[in-house]
Design a binder for these strands. Structure first.
Length: 1137
RNA sequence: GGGCUUGUAGCUCAGGUGGUCAGAGCGCUACACUGAUAAUGUAGAGGUCCGUGGUUCGAGUCCACGCAGGCCCA
């Protein structure tokens, strides 16, 4: 049985062949089932949405996932990985709307919810074939046979169970959030609706800079006792200036927000309407916008009411943080809040681009306001309606409530169709502004043009208005979530501590509600007045409540309602319940006090769907409790960094809230895949890389390897196809050639690796023991990198080993051992060593390059199992690093050999002497005996590599060496600190004699500015850098001198080598096989050449597989061969043996 | 505007705890080497290590402030 040899490296072919092998042998299934009973390593697949086609970045993300699952499998773990599909959500709905040519309004009218949801269900799995194809072609191993699907009833039942648990813990509640709202249409607007073209319009609004009068108390005393800047205290009233383009929200003001790091100025001046004096606080950068330069020059004493130029002086300066907590008087005191309000808080959304750098904050009418108020425990300004409910001061029609006496019943914007061109028309904003002016509460009132969103149906301005919503009270367990996060190993760490950690620190409650159709319905039923409600946690419970409703509901529920309830009961009994809308909307339950309850119409955020996958994928707790307990939490997950606030968060939140656990222990967040210029891929730019084309063109292994080796996965990847071809050439090409080399000669020798009869490692030559030692080191490194989720380091280490150490050093220097003679022990050792290296590389690389690793592994097995226990590399056990085979001293020696060889090469180059020309000797200065021993150990390798006859070592006694001395900065720096420069100068100036004295006695006294210092041997580094009279190369403390005299004999040998080279080329041109024998005929010409031929006949023949070499006076049909200085007529013929 | 992140040769990237190291590969040029080689060796050109300050005897490395790109928010 022979090893397979290949004509060329065909990546696509390798992938296709290995894929077929995996399929046929069910290798993936075996890699999981074969580890039954082993410790588990749990991976969670973040479900992709199959309503779009996969992109190249999915190859990146899935490569990372695959790497660690495969690695852990090799390490003996059972790694189950269930695939999944994310099937709910807005993108799918929008896609279906587009397909059907309808809008949200039409759902339930032109098309029934039932039909619509059916369309969504079909649309969402539209591209599953493409996804499955990509998964397979890129070699991503994940269970596609039994995926979880978020729309399935079992999945939803688990979601309901989880929601019920949250509900029971008091973590699910109905509250409100600020959303765009159209009073004209009486409905909230989604962000999608706001993004319709034409909704944002330029409008002129009345803007007001209002004066908020600071309360003098212990919190503000510092502002009164001194104005800052050393200016005296004042009797002036002190005001914050805050700007708004929605003056109608001012009666709802309950706080002022400043930026923590923004600088604020205190300006002493006068109100431009009332001319009352005052001190005004606003952002320093914006002072010039409100106070004219002229005013700074006018003396304040001379100011009279009515003067055009208003004098001002800056009298103080504060940081935003200094102002935090200062209280002020309510601006428009119509409604008193329930809890303390009216103080300065800090928020990160404050800018100094507009306004005053101080933001008027009304929690009922701004999303930022709402959030920041909640964080600082600022209450909203609310009134109680006739039903006893707390409502904002503007009703749902857009009118002020009666409590806002001066403006009661007025529309805050023109929602009642008033004629705006009428001469006496005043907007409510203007009326408010007038009142403020009169009361010395407005500092500036002006028209302000800006863009503002409008309702696409009514064309009227949108209000930001509190809308009812269901929330998960994530803030209740914020501290715990923060704590738990600290136990998670984030790659990179900054995403965990920074991006995710900060996000957790500033957590707000999770708004769960979505007013859509295709998603998981909220399982909450309520009485009409909201006083009774129930949260359903399972189908069984739903069944029970339905039965109660049916049996007790006569007279309370209508005939139709009862009929629908019975319909659902029937479905449940048949196991065909669909928990989507509209079916759940047709369920009517009874409260404990006998009143009907209706389902809350909301759907839940799809992120809850995916965040609940650890439980729902197993239909926990209704089934698979044991499987769940073994696979929670995940050991490892990986997704794009953009998922930080998406899936990473929802996984973490649900696990933390309900199970007081992390959902994952290790997480790799991957960066983006950009084009080669660092720009985002987009269809518009036409720079999108099609993943199928890339895989077909470059093969999955090279693509995967490139993505990992190029940069750490969390950095953005600039996807450059040239990078892949480089990886192909450099890494895969070299590895392929190494395999070809092995296969070629092993086949010639009919060599097979016999596990039972290896040449003991200690009996193998130095070169073999070296590469084996390096290999062990590599295994340890790669193991550590994989374990540490550092795939880039792993691939770089493997690549360095393969190209530099194995191919470019070991194989290159070992070639002769493979070429010649019979199968000696030395040759066997060489084969076994190379085989072992390749086999190990196949395993080490297999997580990243699963096809090529498999291909190499199977080639090495030679189609039989003689050397390998398993049919697939992916079913093997990790071969651990064997510390006993590591020989650090040997590795060090080899390093010396490589560096000396490189130096000699550079000398040859410098003096234009070809490597084929042998030279007699090199000199190597050695200052220590130990050094000499090290080099002597690899002397032979150096000599053959650089074609030199011998090494001579010269030591101190030769008197030939010129030494160089360098201060040891690290050591001396600590000792001498500021005087380091002088000390360094002193050391560098030491003479050769002084250096010698220092070396001999181990110490040397010098004097620095009259003070005597004692230098010791380890204060300095002494190297030898020159040998006068020789040509010398020196680098990193190594020095070598080359004897360039070429004797006749050397010259002849050089010619002989040239001839060998030419003959080899001719053989190659003739298409001879390596083992074919030849005869050489040469025409006698130059005397020196003849002598060279005669003297090296034996050598030439062996090298070229020539049986005879004949010299002729004349030669017919000779080929003119160009040697360096001669032309030789020569002929070679194949000879059959 | 905020959080995180990146910035080192034409390109892709290395450069623990600050020390005399400004590096590798690719690309370019020249020469060499090659019976595994789309490989390799040697040399050359190419860098105010994004900028400005600061700490220090000493900063690519630490600190501050900027600038530019990216992501996520607002």
């Amino acid at each position: 049985m022979k090893y397979k040899e290949y004509k060329e490296l065909d990546y696509a072919r390798i992938a296709a062949d290995m894929l077929a092998f995996w399929k046929e042998g069910k290798v993936f299934e075996q890699s999981v089932s074969g580890r039954e009973g082993s410790p588990t390593f749990t991976f969670y697949e973040g479900p992709p949405s199959a309503n779009g086609t996969p992109g190249i970045h999915h190859v990146m993300a899935r490569t990372i996932k695959d790497i660690f699952c495969r690695y852990k499998t090799l390490k003996g773990y059972q790694v189950k990985r269930k695939g999944g599909w994310d099937t709910h959500g807005l993108p799918i709905e929008l896609q279906v709307e587009k397909e059907l040519g309808i809008t949200k309004e039409d759902i339930g009218r032109k098309i029934s919810i039932e039909d619509y949801n059916q369309k969504c269900r079909e649309a969402v799995m539209k591209f599953t074939d493409q996804w499955n194809d990509l998964t397979e072609k890129m070699g991503y191993w994940v269970d596609l046979e039994n995926p979880y699907v978020t729309y399935q009833t079992e999945y939803i039942e688990t979601l309901w169970y989880l929601l019920r648990r949250l509900y029971d813990k008091g973590l699910l509640y109905k509250g409100y959030t600020i959303q765009p709202y159209s009073p004209g249409a009486g409905t909230g607007l989604s962000s999608h609706e706001l993004n319709q073209p034409g909704t944002y319009k330029d409008v002129k609004d009345t803007s007001v800079v209002a004066q908020f009068k600071v309360k003098r108390n212990e919190k503000s005393e510092k502002l009164f006792s001194s104005a800052g800047n050393g200016q005296p205290a004042t009797d002036n009233d002190l005001y914050f200036l805050a700007w708004t383009t929605t003056p109608w929200t001012l009666p709802a003001n309950s706080a002022l927000t400043v930026g923590k790091n923004i600088r604020y100025a205190r300006v002493r001046s006068f109100n431009p309407y009332t001319f009352q004096s005052g001190d005004f606080i606003l952002a320093k950068d914006l002072v010039s916008r409100y106070f004219s330069p002229k005013g700074a020059e006018v003396p304040p004493e001379s100011f009279k009411p009515g003067d055009k130029v208003i004098p001002w002086r800056m009298v103080g300066e504060y940081k935003g943080a200094d102002l935090e907590g200062v209280e002020y008087d309510q601006l428009l005191p119509y409604v008193k809040p329930a809890r303390p309000a009216f103080r300065v808080i800090t928020g990160d959304f404050v800018t100094t681009e507009d306004g005053t750098g101080i933001v008027h904050t009304s929690p009922t009418f701004g999303a930022d306001d709402f959030r920041v108020a909640r964080q600082h425990d600022i209450p909203a300004i609310l009134v109680t309606d006739e039903n006893g409910r707390e409502v904002p001061i503007v009703d749902r029609q857009g009118r002020f409530v009666k409590e806002i006496t001066d403006f009661a019943g007025m529309y805050v914007k023109n929602y009642d169709g008033q004629d705006e061109s009428a001469p006496d028309y005043r907007t409510t904003d203007v009326k408010i502004a007038i009142k403020l002016k009169e009361e010395n509460k407005a500092f500036r009132v002006e028209k302000y043009e800006h863009t503002y969103p409008h309702c696409w149906r009514t064309d009227k301005p949108v209000l930001y208005y509190p809308m009812e919503s269901w929330f998960i009270r994530t803030t209740a367990l914020k501290d715990r979530l923060v704590e738990l996060n600290k136990t998670i190993n984030w790659k990179p760490e900054s995403t965990g501590t920074g991006r995710f950690g900060n996000w957790l620190e500033n957590l707000v409650d999770w708004n769960l509600s979505r007013s859509r159709f295709w998603g998981t319905p909220l399982p909450v039923w309520r009485t009409e007045d909201g006083t009774r409600e129930i949260c359903i946690g399972s189908l069984a419970e739903l069944n029970e409540k339905l039965m109660q409703a049916v049996s007790n509901g006569k007279g309370v529920l209508s005939e139709d309602q009862l009929r629908k309830n019975n319909g659902m009961l029937l479905k449940i009994s048949q196991g065909q319940a669909d928990l989507h809308r509209p079916y759940v909307d047709d369920i009517f339950l009874l409260s404990a006090d006998g009143r009907p309850m209706f389902r809350e119409p909301d759907l839940i955020d799809v992120w809850f769907d995916s965040g609940a996958m650890p439980y729902a994928q197993w239909h926990y707790p209704f089934e698979n409790k044991d499987i769940f307990s073994k696979s929670f939490p995940a050991d490892f997950i990986s997704e794009g960094v953009d998922q930080t606030r998406g899936w990473f968060f929802t996984l973490h939140a649900i696990a933390g809230l309900l199970f007081d656990e992390v959902a994952f222990k290790n997480v790799v967040s991957t960066g983006l895949v950009l084009d080669k210029n660092g720009e985002k891929m987009s269809k518009r730019k036409g720079n999108v890389i099609n993943p199928f084309e890339a895989l077909a063109k470059y093969g999955p292994d090279a693509t995967r390897w490139y993505m990992v080796v190029n940069a750490p996965p969390w950095d953005n990847l600039r996807f450059n196809p040239e990078g892949i071809t480089e990886v192909q050439r450099k890494f895969f090409g070299t590895l392929f050639n190494t395999w070809q080399f092995y296969a070629l000669y092993a086949n010639l020798d009919s060599f097979r690796v016999d596990k039972k009869d290896p040449v003991p490692v200690q009996d193998r030559p130095e070169l073999d023991r070296w590469i084996i030692s390096v290999l062990q080191t590599l295994i340890g490194e790669v193991d550590g990198y994989y374990a540490d989720y550092e795939p880039t380091r792993a691939t770089r280490a493997i690549q360095y080993f393969v190209t530099e150490q194995l191919s470019n050093w070991y194989v290159r220097l070992s070639r002769r051992r493979f070429w010649k003679g019979s199968l000696t022990e030395d040759k066997k050792a060489a084969y076994q060593t190379l085989h072992q290296c390749l086999l190990t590389v196949a395993q080490l690389m297999s997580p990243v390059a699963p096809f090529f690793g498999e291909w190499l592994y199977r080639n090495l097995a030679g189609g039989s199992s003689e050397a390998t226990a398993s049919p697939s590399v992916h079913l093997t056990d990790w071969i651990p690093s064997d510390g006993l085979l590591v020989d650090k001293a040997l590795e060090e020696r080899m390093d010396l050999a490589q560096r000396y060889s490189s130096l000699v090469h550079s000398l040859r180059k410098k003096h234009n002497i070809r490597v084929r020309q042998p030279l007699s000797r090199i000199l190597i200065p050695v200052l220590q005996e130990e050094e000499k021993h090290k080099i002597a150990g690899v002397e032979g390798l150096i000599l053959s590599e650089v074609n030199i006859k011998q090494v001579e070592y010269i030591d101190d006694t030769s008197g030939l060496l010129v030494k160089k001395i360098k201060p040891n900065f690290k050591k001396l720096g600590r000792q001498y600190g500021p005087r380091m420069k002088e000390v360094a100068a002193l050391i560098t100036a030491l003479s050769q004699d002084e250096i010698r004295t220092l070396e001999k006695s181990g110490s040397f006294g010098v004097s620095l500015a009259g003070e005597s210092l004692m230098l010791t041997a380890d204060d300095v580094e002494i190297t030898s850098e020159d040998i006068p009279g020789w040509i010398v190369a020196s680098e990193d403390g190594l020095t070598v001198a080359l004897d360039v005299t070429i004797s006749d004999e050397l010259r002849k040998e050089g010619i002989a080598r040239d001839i060998v080279n030419r003959v080899q080329n001719m053989r190659k041109d003739m298409g001879l096989e390596v083992q074919d024998k030849i005869r050489i005929d040469v025409q006698i010409s130059d005397e020196l050449v003849n002598a060279a031929l005669e003297a090296n006949r034996e050598y030439i023949c062996t090298e070229t597989q020539a049986l005879e070499l004949n010299m002729h006076q004349s030669l017919e049909n000779g080929q003119a061969v160009d040697l360096e200085d001669f032309v030789l007529s020569m002929k070679i013929q194949s000879v059959s043996v």
